[in-house]
Design a protein around this nucleic acid. Structure first.
Lengths: 220, 220
DNA sequence: GATAGTTTCATACAACTGTTTGAATTGCAA
DNA sequence: TTGCAATTCAAACAGTTGTATGAAACTATC
């Protein structure tokens, strides 16, 4: 309980190393060297390596989900309990994209860490991700209120595809840059968000009149 | 050169184990036990564990890419060197989705292996994936012919999003089923393909008249 | 049927992994 | 200061990993 100094040094060092080198080849010995603490400190403070990784990921996940829900809640309050489709989608994919993309040289360690977590999917992280379903259900519910005429199936596919585009863009941003010879601007995060949201809105509202304002779907 | 029996037994056993248990916890000893061969046989026939994995993945990748290109070529020949947007997209995402989705109990070992490869992303596989850019360029070129008015940027984003939806559906099919309480039918592969293609077509052609037939975008 | 080349085999190797141990040290309360 | 708990430390542990070795078994050629 006393200092907590060692504990946070380990957390910081671990996140830094995982962010840069991935989970695959970072050992406990690397971490304690980076943190300037003793090897046994990890097991003393966290119990095991997996629990260290889990704590790292849970912390960031909670923060991310909190942000998403806050955005959703604000939007629904302003809209009399009903937010528009594009606003809901922006609350879903915006925080992630803002957190993980943007100019590479100014990405936070936390962002790089979450990118790794999104790419490598090591067991302790996978276990946590599986519990995030409840979180998504809240967005499904919001979307149901925004599109009362759409079937649940359509809504789930819409949310699924929105997340697909967001996560894939994060995971494969390097490849997209290379493929397009830099013509796709991965630094313009807001542009990307509008692109993703625009596509998802089209998918969710295609063939029906929207119940709210048509939303500015054009990207850039 | 002689028998090749051992070699293929190793390949088959390795693919089977990786497909079921993932790359994370399958050791060479597991593989040789499953294949009923000696431990040293792997290094004798493949050089190293990584090269074994690479050969496995390259084989499947080549087959997949061949299938995609064949579909594209057929379509372009039938259309006087110009295929329609939806047909190009179907050639891009169809083979992958057909190969990896469908009723879980009748998925081939190869399909399960490719799903694993898509989820876990171990170093030797990542190295190979990075060389697949040329392959994508061919689809970009075909798309440019189909949509001469669209900018390269729009085309790359369109292809990127199409792949995003396809791969994410494969990676997260379990989660989508759980989230939607089974309302999203992951066994109807053709339905999924139409859904993905439909979305991508909308994204690529939004705001402009299509140069070919409007394509049946509605899913199911 | 001897021989040369290929393939198999049991075994050892060397390195690295996360974890544990028990003693030393520290910090704080009485 | 004394005593007690929390923390740090060096060292070792136990297990696993991929790989290398050298002899044995095989196979096909002459």
């Amino acid at each position: 309980m006393a200092s907590d100094q060692t504990r946070s040094a380990i957390l910081a060092a671990a996140e830094r190393l995982y962010a840069v080198r991935g989970f695959g080849d970072v050992t406990l010995r690397d971490i304690v060297a980076e943190a300037n603490v003793n090897l046994a400190a990890v097991n003393y403070h966290f119990g095991s390596k997996d629990e260290l990784i889990a704590e790292l990921f849970v912390t960031r996940s909670i923060a991310l989900n909190r942000e998403r829900l806050a955005e959703l809640k604000t939007a629904e309050e302003q809209g009399d309990g009903r937010a528009s489709v594009d606003v809901i989608l922006r609350a879903l994919v915006g925080p992630t994209l803002h957190g993980c993309l943007g100019p590479a040289n100014q990405r936070s360690t936390a962002a790089r860490f979450m990118i790794r977590a999104s790419i490598e999917s090591v067991p302790p992280i996978r276990r946590i991700k599986n519990r995030e379903i409840d979180h998504l259900r809240k967005f499904a519910a919001a979307m149901r209120r925004a599109l009362p005429d759409r079937s649940d199936e359509e809504i789930y596919w819409g949310l699924h595809f929105a997340l697909a585009m967001a996560h894939h863009t994060i995971r494969e941003s390097e490849r997209l840059t290379k493929l397009s010879d830099g013509r796709c601007d991965l630094d313009d995060v807001d542009g990307i968000i509008e692109r993703v949201v625009g596509m998802a809105v089209m998918g969710l509202t295609a063939g029906k009149a929207e119940s709210k304002a048509p939303a500015k779907v054009a990207a850039r």
